[in-house]
């Protein structure tokens, strides 16, 4: 039955147009490895090179968000070097339209702030997105941010067909956060 179960799971993923699926602890090595396979796959398929570049950019920003901010993991309490963060990644295509979806647990108290940020960038046109991107690159790094704080803006910039996001309450302290970027 094992093969049958796995084959069914594979079939379900295939039906959804999913090319890559990863669920588990995400490390920088996994980011590099999956990233290389994605690039290879797109190259072998002769995917439009600008679409491939945008997809790769979105993938990197999404994965680095999980590595830095997922609220589910091992040793994540006091910013230790050997921490591991849990996340879920899908790369798929609706016909020829690629998307990158990423999901992870976050702290519930971050939902309001994230919603405000994401709604704000969702409403911007390309010119204003670029303005915000540059402003953020020049500005101070937000408190509690380990990156440039521009990851979401970059995703919005690269997702030419827009992005969707959702939150789902899990318990008193955690929510499940999902972001789907349409390349």
């Amino acid at each position: 039955m094992l093969a049958k179960d796995m084959f069914e799971l594979r079939g379900r993923l295939e039906n959804e147009g999913i090319i890559f699926c990863y669920s588990g602890y995400v490390t920088e090595e996994i980011l590099t490895g999956i990233g290389n396979s994605i690039r290879k796959k797109l190259e072998l398929d002769n995917t439009d090179r600008n679409i491939g570049r945008r997809l790769f950019s979105i993938f990197v920003e999404q994965m680095q968000n999980v590595i830095r901010y997922s609220a589910e993991g091992l040793n994540t309490d006091d910013d230790q070097k050997d921490e591991l963060r849990f996340g879920l990644l899908l790369v798929g295509a609706d016909n020829d339209d690629f998307y990158v979806s990423c999901a992870n647990k976050i702290r519930k108290h971050d939902v309001v702030r994230l919603t405000e940020q994401l709604e704000h960038i969702k409403g911007l046109d390309r010119e204003d997105l670029m303005k915000l991107y540059k402003m953020t690159l020049k500005g101070e790094t937000p408190v509690g941010s380990k990156g440039a704080g521009v990851g979401f803006i970059d995703i919005a910039r690269q997702a030419k067909r827009g992005f969707d996001f959702h939150f789902m309450d899990l318990d008193d302290t955690h929510s499940f956060f999902c972001l789907k970027a349409h390349v």
């Binding site: 690159l137 990156g147 440039a148």
Partner: peptide
Amino acid sequence: IYFNSSTAKVLMGLFD
């Protein structure tokens, strides 16, 4: 060839 958003911040500083 490619740089991520954290690198973009470094590049912006370099330009300055």
